[in-house]
């Protein structure tokens, strides 16, 4: 064990925070999706580290699935967003305010 688990967890927490920050602060739908991707990946890091700690493969499996799900997510999300961009010409989430 070179890197203690706590360090990995801290790293992943920081990454999670960055992801949240990105999703919350950038007024661009694409960047929000990216931020959320970062959040997913931060979880992946934690899983990998934990898999090392518990000496089993479940963490690793998780990561594989996360990659797959993230890919789905991007495809679905981007599809909707791009479609919306074509209709409205805007990536600004503030412009999507019809529903109230």
């Amino acid at each position: 064990m070179i890197v203690p688990l706590s360090h990995a967890l801290i790293l992943s927490a920081i990454l999670f925070g960055l992801g949240v920050f990105c999703a919350v602060s950038r007024r661009n739908l694409i960047m929000m999706v990216l931020g959320i991707e970062i959040m997913l990946n931060s979880a992946s890091i934690a899983f990998v580290a934990a898999a090392l700690r518990w000496q089993n493969l479940e963490g690793q499996t998780f990561v594989l699935f996360i990659l797959a799900v993230a890919a789905t997510e991007v495809s679905v999300g981007l599809a909707i967003i791009v479609y919306a961009f074509r209709r409205t010409g805007s990536f600004d989430p503030g412009n999507y305010n019809l529903l109230k």
């Binding site: 949240v20 999703a23 919350v24 602060s25 007024r27 929000m32 989430p93 503030g94 999507y96 305010n97 529903l99 109230k100």
Partner: peptide, 8 residues
């Protein structure tokens, strides 16, 4: 009804 980012 605030912008989606504030909700997040």
């Amino acid at each position: 009804t605030v912008m989606i980012q504030y909700r997040l």
